[in-house]
């Protein structure tokens, strides 16, 4: 089953063609990697999928439904969660609150319910707290739940972003360079974590990453972007041996 389909997506920024006719199909419960040199349009692609940009051409289908032009918060509520390349946590809030805010899209109590402490709001608070604590245990940050998010180490911040994304009960998670700034051991744990959340929560995961070892190890399929164009896609073995990919990205020695 295809969960996300991009059909000839193009995007321009002031005459610069950031994405050019990119088509991709991502299967349900797949770990999909997007690689390419800097400025290839990987993050732009994520920003289009999450509704931050509206593509100038092409269609974006999530579970068969056209979603280009949908507001970012509505896309989040439909079940597409993400992390950011330059970490975007709620710095001056506790680790726990960061994940609790992640539950926003799956809860409903409004202003009056909150102010008056109506039963629906109290019931949801119990649910939110429970969910946030479970996710923090999963991600290994439970002990630090009362710390400010910006007091965490870099690798912990990246993991916290993943926990916050998972709080949304997504069916598709986009990870933008999840391994950036991590040491080899942390990356090893990250790979385990990504596999674990895919298997346990039955999620589809799309990730952008520069670490070839990480990508080749966990991704089942990979797409390669270069100057906004998709130059190859397929299994890691196939992509690794594609002459065009070797020339433009991996380099002759790889």
């Amino acid at each position: 089953m295809i969960i996300l389909e991009m059909d000839k997506i193009s995007q321009e920024f002031g005459g610069l063609r950031a994405l050019d006719n990119v088509s991709l199909k991502i299967n349900e419960q797949e770990i999909f990697g997007i690689i390419g040199p800097n400025g290839a349009g990987k993050t732009t692609l994520f920003n289009i999928i999450t509704g931050i940009y509206v593509p100038i051409e092409g269609d974006l289908l999530f579970k068969g439904q056209r979603i280009n032009g949908t507001a970012p918060y509505d896309i989040a509520r439909m079940g597409i969660a993400r992390t950011f390349q330059n970490i975007r946590l709620f710095d001056k809030l506790s680790v726990l609150d960061n994940v609790r805010i992640g539950c926003h899209g799956v809860t409903h109590s409004g202003f009056w319910a909150s102010v008056l402490g109506l039963p629906i709001s109290r019931k949801e608070e119990v649910f939110i707290l429970d969910r946030a604590e479970k996710l923090l245990q999963l991600i290994g940050l439970y002990e630090k739940r009362y710390e400010y998010a910006n007091n965490l180490a870099y690798g912990e911040q990246r993991r916290l972003e993943i926990a916050r994304a998972l709080a949304l009960e997504p069916s598709l998670v986009l990870l933008d360079e999840p391994g950036a700034g991590m040491n080899p051991q942390e990356k090893e744990e990250l790979m385990k974590l990504i596999r674990q959340i895919r298997d346990d929560l039955h999620l589809t995961i799309v990730l952008v990453e520069h670490d070839m070892n990480l990508v080749m190890n966990i991704c089942e399929r990979i797409a390669v972007l270069n100057y906004g164009r998709k130059i190859a896609d397929g299994t890691p073995a196939k992509v690794k041996n594609d002459p065009q990919v070797i020339q433009s990205y991996l380099g002759a020695g790889a």
Partner: peptide
């Protein structure tokens, strides 16, 4: 704290 991240959490 971060408006873009807030939107990505489903906040209007």
């Amino acid at each position: 704290e971060n408006e873009i991240a807030a939107q990505s959490c489903g906040i209007n």
